[in-house]
Design a protein around this nucleic acid. Structure first.
Length: 431
DNA sequence: CAAAATGATTAACC
DNA sequence: GGTTAATCATTTTG
C-alpha cells in the first residue's frame, strides 16, 4: 500500500536529479522520442499506470540505488528531524491513556465472579467432593450449586479462549506492523517512538474489542447469576430431617437460642445446609417464636419431650403415660390443654397481661411447667438447659410481658465468663 | 386459589 | 459482625 507513493516519489527524484535513474526509467517505458508534449504526458501517464506492473526486483534495485545516494543520510536526518518536531509533538501530547473506568469495572466484576483471575480448578473439584460427601441431605441443594459452577466455568473457559485468541491476533498484527514499519524506516523517516505509538494505537483498537468480549461475558455471568444464585429467592424448604435437627437445638437451648459459630457449623454439617442458612433459620425462628409463642408452644413441648426421651431412653413408658405434653398424647386432652394454655399465654403476652383470667393463665402455665418438670425429673433430670428454657417463658410473662427478648432476659447461667471460651458453651444435649 | 409457612434479604442497630 | 424486625418471594397447605 505504502509502496506506491514511495516508488512514484523515487521516480520523481530520479527523473529530476539522477541521470542514471532517469535513463533507466526511460528504458523501461516506451522509449520512443516524443514528438509533442501530448506524447510526453502520455508517456508519464503510461509510466504511472504501469508502475504496479514493474517487477519486484526492479523496484528493489531502484530502492537500493536510492539508499546508496550520497545525499540520502543527510536528507533523511533532516526529514526525521522535521517530522519529529511536527507530527510527533502534536500527537505526543495525548500520549497518556487514562485507564478506562468502564473497563476497570468489567475487570473487577470478572475477577470477583472468578471468571478472570487465576485458575481455580481445585475449587470446583472440592465443591463437588463436598457435595458428594454430604450425601442425601442437601444433595439437591449443592447439585444446583455445582450446576451453577459448571456453567460458570463454561463461561470462564470460553472467555479465556476468546481472550487468548484476541491476544494472539493482537500480537501477530503488532509484530507484523512493527516489521513493516522497521522495514520502511530505512526509506522513510520513522522513529522508534512512532512505532511505539503505532503499537499503542493497535493495542487500543484491540482492547476495545476485548472490552466487548468482557462486556458480553459479564452479561452472561449476570444472566447466570439471576438464574441460579439470585434464585436464592427461589428457595426450597429444608428437608424434614434438617428442620428437626434445627428445632431440636432451638428448643433445647430455648433459654439462649444463639448457637456459637462452632455450633452453627456443626448444625450446618448435620443438616446439609450452609452456616449462613443456619443463621437465617435461627434468626427467623427466634423472631417468629417470640412474636407468637403460642403458635410454637406445641412444637416446643414436642421437641422438649422428644429431647428428653432421646436423652434418656430409660422408662419412656412411664413418663409418656403421665405427661400430657408428650407427642404421643396429641389429639387427646393433653393436646387441648396445651393449645388452650398457649392461647391464653399469647393473649397475656400481647395484651400486657391484665384483664384476662390472669389467675387461670398463671395456673395453666404453672401446671405446664410443672408437667414439664415432671417429665424432666422422670426422665432423669438430664439437662439444665431444658429446665432453664422451660422456666424462661413464665419469667417472660411475669416480669416483662411485652418484652420477649432473649437479649435482655436474665440468663444468669450462661454468663459465666466474659469470653465464651473454646468449646465450653454448649456441651449438652445437642448430640 | 388464598392463606399459611418459610427461607432469604434488607435496613437499622449495637 | 451478628441481631432484630420488617419484608420479599416462593412453596406448601387446606
Amino acid at each position: 500500500m505504502d509502496e506506491q507513493p514511495r516508488l512514484m516519489h523515487s521516480h520523481g527524484v530520479g527523473m529530476a536529479g539522477h541521470p542514471g535513474l532517469a535513463q533507466h526509467m526511460q528504458d523501461g517505458t516506451a522509449g520512443t522520442d516524443g514528438e509533442g508534449r501530448k506524447q510526453d504526458i502520455g508517456d508519464i501517464l503510461q509510466q504511472i499506470m504501469t508502475i504496479t506492473d514493474q517487477s519486484l526486483d526492479e523496484a528493489q534495485a531502484r530502492k537500493h540505488a536510492l539508499n546508496c545516494h550520497r545525499m540520502k543520510p543527510a536528507l533523511f536526518n533532516v526529514l526525521c528531524e522535521i517530522k519529529e518536531k511536527t507530527v510527533l509533538s502534536i500527537r505526543g501530547a495525548q500520549e497518556e491513556e487514562p485507564p478506562d473506568p468502564q473497563l476497570m469495572r468489567l475487570d473487577n466484576m470478572l475477577l470477583a465472579e472468578g471468571v478472570a483471575g487465576p485458575e481455580k480448578g481445585g475449587g470446583s473439584a472440592a465443591a463437588a467432593a463436598a457435595a458428594a460427601a454430604t450425601g442425601g441431605i442437601g444433595a439437591d441443594n449443592s447439585a444446583e450449586h455445582s450446576d451453577y459452577r459448571a456453567k460458570l466455568s463454561q463461561i470462564r473457559q470460553i472467555y479465556h479462549t476468546e481472550l487468548e485468541k484476541y491476544e494472539q491476533a493482537c500480537n501477530e498484527f503488532t509484530t507484523h506492523v512493527m516489521n513493516l514499519l522497521r522495514e520502511q524506516s530505512r526509506t522513510r523517516p520513522i522513529s522508534p517512538k512512532e512505532i511505539e505509538r503505532m503499537v499503542g494505537i493497535i493495542h487500543r483498537k484491540f482492547s476495545s474489542i476485548q472490552m466487548q468480549l468482557k462486556q458480553s461475558t459479564c452479561e452472561a455471568v449476570m444472566i447466570l447469576r439471576s438464574r441460579f444464585l439470585d434464585a436464592r429467592r427461589k428457595r426450597r424448604n429444608f428437608n424434614k430431617q434438617a428442620t428437626e435437627i434445627l428445632n431440636e437445638y432451638f428448643y433445647s437451648h430455648l433459654s439462649n437460642p444463639y448457637p456459637s459459630e462452632e455450633a452453627k457449623e456443626e448444625l450446618a454439617k448435620k443438616c446439609g445446609i450452609t452456616v449462613s442458612q443456619v443463621s437465617n433459620w435461627f434468626g427467623n425462628k427466634r423472631i417468629r417464636y417470640k412474636k407468637n409463642i403460642s403458635k410454637f408452644q406445641e412444637e416446643a413441648n414436642m421437641y422438649a419431650a422428644r429431647t428428653a426421651v432421646n436423652a434418656t431412653s430409660v422408662s419412656a413408658h412411664g413418663s409418656q403415660a403421665n405427661s400430657p405434653s408428650t407427642p404421643n398424647s396429641a389429639g387427646s386432652a393433653g393436646s387441648f390443654n396445651m393449645s388452650n394454655s398457649g392461647d391464653l399465654f399469647m393473649s397475656v403476652q400481647s395484651l400486657n397481661g391484665d384483664s384476662y383470667q390472669g389467675g387461670q393463665v398463671g395456673a395453666n402455665i404453672q401446671s405446664q411447667v410443672d408437667t414439664l418438670r415432671h417429665v424432666i425429673s422422670q426422665t432423669g433430670g438430664y439437662s439444665d438447659s431444658l429446665a432453664a428454657s422451660q422456666m424462661y417463658s413464665p419469667q417472660g410473662i411475669n416480669v416483662r410481658p411485652t418484652n420477649g427478648g432473649w437479649q435482655d432476659a436474665p440468663t444468669p447461667s450462661s454468663v459465666t465468663s466474659p469470653t465464651e471460651g473454646p468449646g465450653s458453651v454448649h456441651s449438652d444435649t445437642s448430640n
